[in-house]
Design a protein around this nucleic acid. Structure first.
Lengths: 120, 120
DNA sequence: CAAACATATGAACAAATGCTCATATGAAAA
DNA sequence: TTTTCATATGAGCATTTGTTCATATGTTTG
């Protein structure tokens, strides 16, 4: 009856039940993978920089390249990743393609990240 | 005077001014790097799984290993990364070490991520 | 003290990632 | 139509990353 008070790591009833309830609330394999995949997109400073530019305005690829002082190719590759993950949308206008933020979650996620790192 | 209407990508006044105002709001190099670093931590399904377990309860390493059906070593390595980035905190109790969520930002960030991927 | 258990960690290796370079696509201008 | 400009993309390479294996550290028990 007092086993609950003893902290041990070999398999005890309490732990078994706990793990059972945990596995009930764990999202499916696919969602976990998609989530990780999404955050990977935020996990690169070049892409973060691109998003910060898009917080201010809709811009074309070559302006992004100039703003971040990087190759057009490098930027274009990253924009493709951002677009695949629906963080940005694009619109062609003549020879140029303009990119903009896709939705508000992007801002919220980055804001929460900033709050986190500034809090310590 | 009508140059503003023409969309071009070689350097025009409008673009120069835009980029100037953008660079004003861009966080410093170090913060951008730290932000990317933080999101990298969320960008792995094993670590996401660990966080989901910790959403439910404070657990020890070997329970995490059993819950996720992974090596103790693998879990321990990932916990180190989570701890270095202040996403989790740990507490020793006898032979075991218990891990728990460090703060609320973790939940918010993951929730926003889930909303984003489920919206399409 | 030694033995047993829980966790941490370093080295090594395979897989993933970001950039560069060359080149392709697509649209406007000559 | 041919050239020029803006963007997209595939291959290659160096770096980073997650796991495994072996072993170290730290704590309790005998």
């Amino acid at each position: 009856m007092d086993r609950n008070e003893i902290e041990r790591c070999d398999t005890v009833e309490v732990h078994r039940e706990l793990l059972k309830s945990v596995s009930g609330k764990m999202p499916k394999e696919e969602e976990l993978y998609d989530l990780a995949e999404l955050f990977k997109v935020f996990g690169d400073s070049t892409r973060i920089r691109i998003l910060f530019v898009l917080f201010e305005a809709e811009v074309c690829v070559c302006d992004l390249a100039e703003a971040l002082n990087m190759t057009q190719s490098a930027i274009s590759h990253q924009l493709k990743i951002l677009k695949q993950n629906k963080l940005v949308r694009s619109r062609r206008e003549g020879k140029s393609v303009f990119y903009a933020l896709a939705d508000g979650h992007v801002r919220t996620i980055i804001d929460q990240g900033r709050e986190h790192i500034e809090e310590e």
